[in-house]
């Protein structure tokens, strides 16, 4: 009801103005195009050449799609894609489940406690670099507070960042600590904007808690959930800072994500900017495909829910 009204208001707002309303958008549009498209095309240009920025004397040779072929035979590159998938998958799933549960708890029992929400979202407000540094110290096996606290519970000194599996776990844990509040906030906002009537009606019909959740809350919440997950997915693809500060992709290359790999190849470790450009382009394509699939899937899911 409310949504439709706003939409109608919007229509009236525009029809009230002259046809030249597009002119008002034009400057912003031009700037957007200028800022985003040239780098994009330049990336494509780079990706089909063999350019090493630290070795200008080697020249700029056109090599077609060879960079892309190299990626698929480079097991460090493949590994970085796998690591990214594990990391993002782990982060988003855990954050979603925790966020949903916490949102439901707060919505049911602490509705009036706005201070609680403020408290919970504090981690989100810190710069990731700071969080990475603080956690790095806390996870230090000999001087860190985490192992110290685990001692009485019988946990031996855990090598949080220097064992491949633990390192991956630690990164996911830190990200979950920081970004679960985001999921919580989105879902809580969704929950609190839901209309009351369907809930009252279902209670009258004698529905239990689970049934209310499954057949009323979830379907109504679905659009919010989809948006929250898409936001988180896109943002999670850029978790560069935390990974870089906690492990720099190590031990070895066991937590090296695609963006860290591209950064190492293109500028930090080698100067193979062309190879890095190809890797980033693949990330871009994969992201677009994944998001499209996810949105299609979520539409299907919505129909199933009703």
């Amino acid at each position: 009801m409310t949504v439709r009204q706003t939409y109608m208001d919007g229509k009236r707002f525009f029809s009230g103005l002259s046809e030249n309303v597009w002119l008002m958008f034009l400057p912003a549009l031009i700037i957007l195009v200028l800022v985003t498209l040239p780098p994009f095309f330049y990336t494509i240009y780079l990706s089909v050449h063999d350019i090493d920025i630290t070795k200008p004397y080697l020249g700029r040779n056109f090599i077609g799609l060879k960079n892309f072929a190299t990626i698929f035979s480079d097991h460090r590159a493949i590994g970085s894609f796998t690591n990214t998938a594990i990391l993002i998958g782990g982060m988003v799933v855990v954050e979603f489940v925790l966020g949903l549960l916490l949102a439901l708890v707060i919505d049911s029992f602490f509705k009036k406690a706005t201070w609680l929400v403020t408290l919970i979202i504090i981690p989100m407000t810190f710069p990731r670099v700071v969080i990475g540094l603080v956690w790095r110290i806390m996870l230090n096996p000999i001087v860190g507070v985490v192992n110290y606290l685990l001692q009485p519970v019988g946990g031996g000194p855990v090598d949080w960042l220097a064992r491949p599996t633990w390192a991956m776990f630690s990164i996911i844990m830190v990200d979950v600590w920081q970004w679960t509040p985001f999921m919580l906030l989105m879902i809580l906002a969704g929950l609190q904007s839901l209309p009351k009537e369907p809930f009252d009606a279902s209670r009258v019909d004698g529905a239990g808690d689970f049934h209310v959740f499954r057949f009323i809350t979830l379907p109504l919440l679905q659009p919010i959930i989809v948006v929250a997950i898409v936001f988180r997915l896109i943002d999670a693809l850029r978790t560069f800072d935390i990974v870089y500060i906690l492990t720099r992709g190590g031990p070895g290359t066991s937590t090296e994500t695609v963006d860290i790999f591209a950064y190492y190849m293109g500028i930090s470790e080698a100067g193979r900017i062309s190879y890095a450009a190809s890797v980033s382009l693949i990330v871009l394509y994969v992201t677009i495909i994944l998001i499209t699939l996810f949105l299609r899937f979520s539409r299907q899911w919505r129909e199933e829910l009703y």
Binding site: N140, P141, I142, V143, P157, V158, D159, W160, L161, A162, T247, R248, G250, P251
Partner: peptide, 21 residues
Amino acid sequence: GPPGVATYGWDDVQNAFTSGK
């Protein structure tokens, strides 16, 4: 070496040493 030494940078080496461990 202390646990985690596989990922020690120079600052970690320094901190571990100055902590007396």
